[in-house]
Structure formats: structure tokens, C-alpha cells
């Protein structure tokens, strides 16, 4: 079970994503932004951070990285892909997921422990959770407000493609309290909160996030 973790210049949470993969029993494989090479991995994580400084627009430059072209091709063939925070922004920019993430409504970076409701447990990354379960994981982002046009939102809601929703006060102004969504085939998932920072109660608020990485291992083993 090989899980690729991409490092762009400015990626920050790659070490955390790699650790989460190891905790779940997978093998973490480092992928470099400039390489057209996925190194025979079974799944890919696009981790958080500030790829290329996020200077133009979050994720706008990263989507053109050589490695992302490989990711897009692999995703189209059904490879599980997870985008966390900046990774979610990159997947949206790469059109693997619909919509966009904009500046938090209060205009401040927000780092806090956030309750999420699991809305869809049939994706490659969420099968370990009970439908409707509430989990506590860190949220840390300045541009986490999920935005999409009405028809896209209707489509996401209608097809059950909202994977996670914020519980309680909406932390960033996301439409429909959306914290994470999935592709039509349930293989690509993107979310703003950080499950990789919640894999044990020593360094995170809980170990609730580990379920995402265990789900992946299950789904690949089953496939």
C-alpha cells in the first residue's frame, strides 16, 4: 500500500501527512513537484501549506506543476486522491473538484479545533466513519470559505457529495457549511480541516482524523 505525498516549494504539512499514512499502516512515498513521476503509488495526498507562496491565488500555480498533471491523469482513472487545505485548493484549481476557496469571512487566519459532521461515508477516504458521526479535527486556514455557484451546490447536495460539514458556528463563511466534498466517483476528496493533525491525542485534539487514512488502506486493499 504505497501512498504518495506531494511536496511543492512551500508545502508545510507533508511530514504530517506522511506520518498519518504510516500510522494507518501504509507506506508514505515522497513525490516532488517537478517530477512527472508518481512512483507507482496506489493513492496520492496533496498536503497543506502555501505552495509557491500562494502568491497568485491559492493553488493556482501548483496545479501547473509537472506532478499535478500525473495526478489529474491518475485520478481520471480512479486513483484515490486526497487534498487537505492547500491541497483542496489545488484540486479545485486543477478541476478535479468543483468550486473554489476564498478568504475567510472575518478576514483572519483561523486555527482552531473544529467539529465536523461526516455526511458521506461511502468515499475512498471516509468508509471507516459512521454516517452522521461528529469528529473533532484542527482547522487552520486563511482562505477556507467554500464557494460554488447555485447549480454546483445543488448538484453536490443532490448527489450526496458533501463529505464533511462544519458543526456549530461556521468558521469561515463556507456555503452550506461545507468543509469537504468529493468527486462524482467518490475517489477524490478535498477538505479544509486537517485530519493528519488529529491522529493521536498527544499532538492533536483527538485521533478522529486517522479514520480517513485507515479508510484509504481499506479501500485499496479491497480494490
Amino acid at each position: 500500500m504505497r501512498v504518495g505525498v506531494i511536496t511543492f516549494p512551500g508545502t508545510l504539512d507533508d511530514v504530517d501527512a506522511e506520518r498519518a499514512v504510516r500510522y494507518a499502516g501504509g507506506e508514505a512515498v515522497k513525490l516532488w513537484h517537478a517530477d512527472h513521476d508518481l512512483k507507482d503509488v496506489d493513492a496520492v495526498i496533496v498536503p497543506g501549506g502555501f505552495s509557491y507562496g500562494d502568491y497568485l491565488r491559492c493553488g493556482a500555480i501548483a496545479r501547473f506543476a509537472p506532478v499535478m498533471q500525473e495526478v489529474v491523469d491518475a485520478a481520471k482513472k480512479g486513483m484515490p486522491v486526497l487534498g487537505i487545505c492547500n491541497g483542496f485548493q489545488i484540486l479545485c484549481e486543477a478541476h478535479l473538484l468543483p468550486g473554489a476557496l476564498i478568504r475567510n469571512h472575518k478576514l483572519h487566519f483561523v486555527c482552531r479545533d473544529q467539529w465536523l459532521k461526516v455526511e458521506n461515508n461511502s468515499t475512498a477516504w471516509t468508509s471507516r466513519y459512521d454516517q452522521g458521526a461528529e469528529i473533532l479535527v484542527p482547522l487552520k486556514s486563511g482562505e477556507g470559505g467554500y464557494q460554488a455557484d447555485r447549480s454546483t451546490l445543488d448538484e453536490l447536495e443532490g448527489e450526496g457529495r458533501v463529505v464533511f460539514r462544519y458543526v456549530g458556528e461556521n468558521p469561515n463563511g463556507s456555503r452550506n457549511d461545507i468543509a469537504g466534498i468529493t468527486s462524482a466517483n467518490g475517489r477524490v476528496v478535498g477538505l479544509m480541516p486537517h485530519p493528519e493533525h488529529a491522529i493521536d491525542a498527544l499532538t492533536g485534539p483527538t485521533d478522529d482524523g486517522l479514520g480517513m487514512f485507515l479508510s484509504l488502506v481499506d479501500s485499496v486493499v479491497k480494490a
Binding site: 508545510l12 504539512d13 511530514v15 504530517d16 506520518r19 483572519h108 487566519f109 483561523v110 486555527c111 482552531r112 484542527p138 487552520k140 486537517h194 493528519e196 493533525h197 491522529i199 498527544l202 499532538t203 492533536g204
Partner: peptide
């Protein structure tokens, strides 16, 4: 103040 600071990155914060 402190919720504007990332305290989790790198996974070593106890």
C-alpha cells in the same frame, strides 16, 4: 490572538 497562529504544523506540538 493565538487562533491566528498555526500551532499544529509538523505534528510535534504537545
Amino acid at each position: 490572538v493565538t487562533q491566528q497562529y498555526d500551532r499544529y504544523v509538523r505534528g510535534g506540538t504537545v
